[in-house]
Design a protein around this nucleic acid. Structure first.
Length: 247
DNA sequence: TTTACGGCTGACA
DNA sequence: GTGTCAGCCGTAA
């Protein structure tokens, strides 16, 4: 049997080949989300753009804007991409996203943001440090403001270092509602921030975390220690949590 | 190539 | 405690 025949047989066992139309046209879908209906455009490598309808406005205008910006025609997709609907309900790893048109810096920012677990928040400065550009804090904000796939890449989980929620693509109210929907205690965080507290530690483990970290939330009141800075926590003998990597 | 602009931050009054 | 300001840095025009 020739190699080319083997290859052909193997291809038959794989996913159905995409048609030419699939390669040159993207497909759009509507889907429900915590922010109401969203529009999404999907290419052969994944979701390329997602916008809440309430923010994007009229579907025609949204599609026209997409065509203009990306120079690609769009048609209704036969079905939503695998994983999109569960991801918008907060379940599963989510669909593939196509960030190929972004700069390497922007992709790094979004990749770091995608690692923030549901129900937790990180400061803009944390994202900057994670990607090796600790001083590019504002540039991180600029990238997140243009996140092509909000909700799928949870830019709402990036908040200001001083305890305020910060801005959001479709408005602060949406950011607040998303975070509260994930169980983030914004009132509690604001109280901590008002008292100058940015980190919580456990005096039984000697570990210090961001307040929304999974571990910080389990510290019982009697053992909870509050810190204004990581330096203070270190001086007191605490080490940074390996999960939330406070900075 | 230059410039202006942010989903920010830390310092200082 | 709160308000202001300069610094920072990747983009887009």
């Amino acid at each position: 049997m020739t190699d080319s025949l083997l290859t052909s047989l193997r291809d038959l066992a794989g996913p159905a080949p995409t048609t030419l139309a699939d390669r040159v046209m993207d497909g759009w879908v509507r889907a429900p989300s915590p922010l109401g209906e969203v529009y999404a455009v999907v290419g052969d490598r994944g979701v390329r753009l997602l916008r809440p309808a309430a923010y994007a406005g009229d579907l025609d205008a949204f599609l026209e804007g997409y065509r203009e910006r990306h120079g690609r025609p769009v048609r209704p997709a036969a079905r939503p991409p695998r994983g999109l609907l569960p991801a918008l309900r907060g379940r599963g790893p989510g669909p593939a996203v196509d960030l190929g048109e972004l700069t390497p810096f922007a992709r790094d920012v979004l990749a770091a943001t995608a690692r923030i677990p549901s129900g937790q928040t990180r400061p803009y400065g944390w994202v900057a440090r994670e990607i090796g550009h600790p001083k590019a804090v504002r540039a991180v904000g600029t990238v997140l403001a243009r996140n092509p796939v909000p909700l799928l890449i949870p830019c709402h989980r990036v908040t200001r270092g001083d305890g305020q929620v910060g801005q959001y693509l479709s408005g602060v109210a949406d950011k607040v509602s998303l975070l509260e929907g994930e169980g983030v205690d914004l009132g509690g965080l604001a109280d901590l921030a008002a008292g100058g507290v940015r980190y919580l530690g456990s005096d039984t483990t000697g570990v210090v975390c961001f307040p929304t970290c999974h571990h910080a939330r389990r510290i019982t009141a009697a053992h909870r220690q509050r810190f204004a800075s990581l330096a203070r926590a270190r001086d007191a003998g605490y080490r940074p949590c390996r999960d939330c990597r406070p900075m």
